[in-house]
């Protein structure tokens, strides 16, 4: 346990990228804890935002977006030309800009200086629009798909345990339901395109 504690707090950037890619929840949480205070102080000072609650919300979105870039293979160990926190702060600046832009009136918004994330960090962001559409559909999903897919894809629970916990006859029926859910989500997204 203690070895694991030290490991997740002292991982290299390459190890953190691998951990993000494989959804290592412990390592992601450690990364989150490690940079939280410094990130909020720096971004807060840069944008003159004093409300810590908003800064923590921005930080959650930023870490999530960093994970998306890694999961989509747009930020890999080979892409890293600067330390990983540099990318975290770069993404954070853009998330903060987006948040501020949403709260502004259109005239103010037009005057706001904006650097595109792609130019700033040299990361391919072409996937973002489609992923946002998919996220909107996924966020509306309810029973029985939401718990089933979350337990399988995020919690990485085996199908027999999921079947037991969600009252399916057996692992095969849970698996069949999982495929149906996936198919249904695809149909809805194709319908909206």
């Amino acid at each position: 346990m203690q070895t694991a504690t030290r490991k997740v707090y002292q991982m290299t950037d390459q190890e953190y990228i691998a951990a993000f890619r494989s959804n290592d929840q412990r390592a992601i949480t450690a990364f989150y804890d490690l940079h939280r205070e410094a990130f909020c102080k720096q971004i807060g000072a840069l944008f003159r935002v004093l409300d810590m609650d908003s800064l923590y919300d921005v930080y959650i979105v930023t870490v999530t977006r960093l994970w998306e870039f890694i999961r989509k293979g747009k930020l890999t160990e080979q892409h890293l030309v600067k330390p990983l926190p540099h990318y975290l702060y770069g993404i954070g600046k853009h998330v903060m800009q987006e948040t501020l832009r949403k709260s502004m009136v259109p005239e103010e918004r037009a005057q706001m200086y904006r650097i595109e994330l792609e130019e700033d960090l040299r990361i391919d962001t072409s996937f973002v629009a489609q992923l946002e559409r998919v996220k909107r559909v996924v966020n509306q999903m309810g029973e029985p798909c939401e718990p089933l897919l979350t337990l399988y894809l995020w919690e990485k629970q085996p199908m027999d345990i999921i079947a037991f916990n969600l009252d399916y006859k057996n692992a095969d029926s849970a698996k069949a339901q999982k495929y149906k859910c996936m198919e249904k989500l695809k149909r809805i997204i194709y319908h909206q395109l």
Binding site: N23, I28, T64, W67, E68, R71, K72, F127, Q130, L131, V134, K135, V137, V138, N139, L149, T150, L153, W154, E155, M182, L185, K186, I189
Partner: peptide, 11 residues
């Protein structure tokens, strides 16, 4: 993308 979106919710 659906898998990523579901995992992103969990994250």
């Amino acid at each position: 993308d659906i898998i990523i979106a579901i995992q992103e919710r969990g994250l």
